[in-house]
Amino acid sequence: MISTRSALLAALLVALPVHAFAEYKDPLDSHAAMSPMAASTQLLDVAQAGERLVAVGWRGHIVYSDDKGVSWHQASTPVDIDLTALSFPTATKGWAVGHGGVILHSVDAGATWTKQLDGRDVGPLMLEYYEGQLKRGDESAQKYIEDVRLNTEGGPEQPWLDVAFKDDMHGYVVGTFNQIMYTADGGKSWVPQMELVDNPDALHLNAIALDGDDLYIASERGIVFKKPKDSDHFSALATGYNGSFFGVVARDHAVLAFGLRGSLFRSGDQGVTWERAASGIDTAITGGTILDDDQVLVVSQGGQLLRARSLDSSFEKLNVERPAMFTGIAQAQKNEVVIVGTAGANLQSLSHVP
């Protein structure tokens, strides 16, 4: 028997004009729709670009503010697909990444963007790289060939989850199932580096942070991967935690990883030893930043804001003016931050909180 729902759907499809199907355009090839509400809809990350603030999110939306987060303008973007993270190593040059394997680049502080790569290119690029290694006698490359085929057999569906650039030439993108690539020429070319991560189970690489020349990647099963200055290899660091980390921040050899159920783990010796820091909350911590004065702020899925005076200090819960599901945070100016999430970008003062 055909259900009423199925019958209605069939009737609707028959009633649709032919041009309704012909007008479909791949989100990877469609510009994001311009909207006066872009800064009030779902945003996933925010960063400083010199004096400017830039945020990315839902359906290719990128917004920027030149007045410390008071007002926002929408940027022109060449994709209509969710963007997850961004990095500005200089005041003008930045990169944004997201679903569909998208990598975008801006040279004007985030006002306009061009596409450097998407998932339709990533699969063949990775296959060519590891097949070349196999031909040169590296039998371990066979595993990565199989992983790449598995990840791309359904099309360009794997997202990049984070991006970090040290300067305007050298940067990394990381994503699901151990996907990682590196560029040394500002994104003109990308080199896969899956074999350089001590990740045999292909855990997701959820976030990446720089501390000078050291790199840290937050992953699943309580693992943080580290690449020190004098190595090309990302070693797995055991933190004593078994859940997922969604983010990591680092400065001056101190590291903080955060994730599920309010979990905060920190290291004061470049990841050699770790300790749990009390958060006082049980919702996922999804974003964090270190301010110019070394204060550490993290935000949660439950709309909470926590502060520590430094990476080795205890955390306190602050009052939030507009709670929502938070995903990212960045400094706007002294005593003010911008928090992004399901309610868009919102200013939060630190002056009148404990």
Score class of each variant (00 low, 15 high):
Asp269Lys: 08
Leu134Glu: 13
Leu8Ile: 15
Gly268Arg: 06
Ala257Cys: 02
Trp274Gln: 02
Val97His: 01
Trp160Lys: 07
Thr152Cys: 11
Gly247Trp: 03
Thr112Tyr: 02
Phe177Gly: 01
Leu86Gly: 03
Pro17Trp: 05
Thr283Gln: 14
Ala332Lys: 10
Thr342Lys: 11
Asp147Met: 13
Leu291Asp: 03
Ile2Met: 12
Ser244Val: 15
Leu210Asn: 00
Pro36Gly: 07
Lys135His: 04
Ser300Val: 11
Asp293His: 11
Gly344Arg: 08
Tyr24Val: 08
Thr176Asp: 04
Ser300Asp: 09
Leu264Ser: 07
Ser314Asn: 12
Gly341Ala: 09
Phe246Cys: 01
Ser87Thr: 14
Arg221Lys: 15
Val107Trp: 05
Ala141Glu: 12
Ala22Cys: 02
Ser349Asn: 00
Ala236Thr: 02
Asp282Tyr: 01
Val97Asn: 00
Ala330Ile: 01
Ala345Asn: 04
Gly271Asp: 03
Leu28Val: 05
Gln295Ala: 14
Thr239Tyr: 04
Gly328Trp: 01
Ile81Leu: 13
Glu128Tyr: 05
Ala202Asp: 15
Ser314Arg: 10
Thr112Trp: 02
Ala236Val: 04
Gly123Ile: 08
Thr342Phe: 12
Ala55Gly: 00
Val197Gln: 05
Val107Asn: 13
Ala184Gly: 15
Val255Cys: 03
Ala7Asp: 13
Asp214His: 03
Lys93Asp: 12
Pro36Asn: 13
